[in-house]
Design a protein around this nucleic acid. Structure first.
Lengths: 230, 230
DNA sequence: ACCTGAACACCGTTCAAGT
DNA sequence: ACCTGAACACCGTTCAAGT
């Protein structure tokens, strides 16, 4: 057991325990395993068997740790581009599916990631080529491509946020929702009552994959209409 | 100045300082004025000129305060329903615009609100009638109505999250984004480079209202296509 | 029933001191 | 240059005691 335990001072060459990368990796593990609230500087330091203050030599503060995690998640994102072998709408859907799957890898981090503007801005640069390529093939003008890509990304973000939130919950939403819609006064929301009531508990038990595909189809159909109209 | 200051024990009838509602109102003000991080139980108590522990007689813990805030924001949401006087797609867009505007009232709370599953579930019951009515008029089947409404809500959530995040930032995103896209190797993302580069700084300076309308148009066009296909 | 004061077990972070 | 230990100014929350 050499070089282990609480030595003080600078470690000798080749035995550095700490680096920005090592810290972020450990932080990601904590967040994945125990949630975002479990991540504290002291806990993180303990995991790395290091003094809490040592972290501050590699990252300026806790906010930087969180920003680093968002960056890490997006950096790990790779959208496979099926290219021109498939129709443009299928290319677009494939890229969207891959993006959603990337976000799903770390549900406890979804909130942090999606609200980190500079991380989201990063992702545009790193992963948006397949989106732009598909929309270009669809025949949209540059401005329309830009806006359609943003709309699609917004949908995926909203969807992922909902998916991550529901996964974190324990209780079942569908029966509760149904009960409350049925309890509404008859004249208050007639259409809502008829539609939601008609679907029943099994109809409302949300199928995330199906819901995502449905959204993608609606969006590609809308984009196709835009392309036809140019 | 009677009845002011630090008296101990139960207040006499008519002079209660504290209630769940009063606490949440004060909390909302702090979050609106100074951000979510400024909201602590101790700070909240100080604002109400009360001992921190007093809060716990009205709300079980801080999580309940945050959940109460989400509830409060959604409760204040009222979607005007233009009804059948306008085409279904305009009715749908009006409801969506009102929903977005409701979320914009408290940008510092957006993250909390959008990730609170039970609050989001609430909103369905309270405000979704115009959405369902418009989609019904469009000629969709019940299942399609349910999914189209969810897709639209997801888009609004993703959009609002982006809007709230960017508002919190100080720096300008567009120039930074442009610089980095232009710095990409020529063969890496040719379409992205061509489209984003072509738009230029002024083309990328994001117009939230325009982006939202563009998304709504794409979605309603896609929904119209679904309706035609049934 | 409602409010309080002291206390507990935590936080993030600064600063001076080690090697 | 990097790590440490003590300290500061905070947190949320429990618990027993007041009226």
């Amino acid at each position: 057991m050499v070089n282990v335990g609480k030595r003080s001072g600078r470690p000798r060459a080749g035995e550095e325990r700490l680096s920005r990368e090592a810290i972020l990796t450990a932080a990601l593990r904590i967040v994945d395993d125990e949630g975002i609230d479990a991540l504290t500087m002291r806990r993180l330091a303990a995991t790395l068997q290091v003094n809490p203050m040592s972290l501050y030599h590699h990252l300026p503060n806790k906010a930087a740790v969180l920003a680093g995690l968002a960056e890490l998640v997006f950096a790990g994102l790779e959208l496979p581009d099926p290219g021109d072998a498939v129709p443009w709408d299928e290319q677009l859907k494939e890229a969207a599916r891959a993006y959603r799957n990337g976000l799903r890898q770390h549900p406890n981090l979804a909130l942090q990631v999606l609200s980190d503007t500079s991380a989201v801005s990063d992702v545009v640069v790193v992963t948006m080529e397949p989106f732009y390529r598909a929309l270009d093939r669809a025949g949209l003008e540059p401005r329309q491509i830009f806006e359609a890509a943003n709309t699609l990304i917004d949908f995926i973000h909203g969807f992922s946020l909902g998916e991550a939130s529901v996964r974190a919950e324990t209780f079942e939403l569908a029966p509760d929702l149904l009960t409350r819609v049925r309890a509404l006064p008859a004249d208050k929301a007639p259409t809502l009552k008829r539609i939601v009531g008609g679907l029943g508990v099994e109809g409302l038990a949300y199928d995330f994959d199906g819901g995502f595909e449905s959204g993608l189809s609606t969006l590609t159909a809308g984009i196709a209409a835009t392309a036809r109209r140019r």
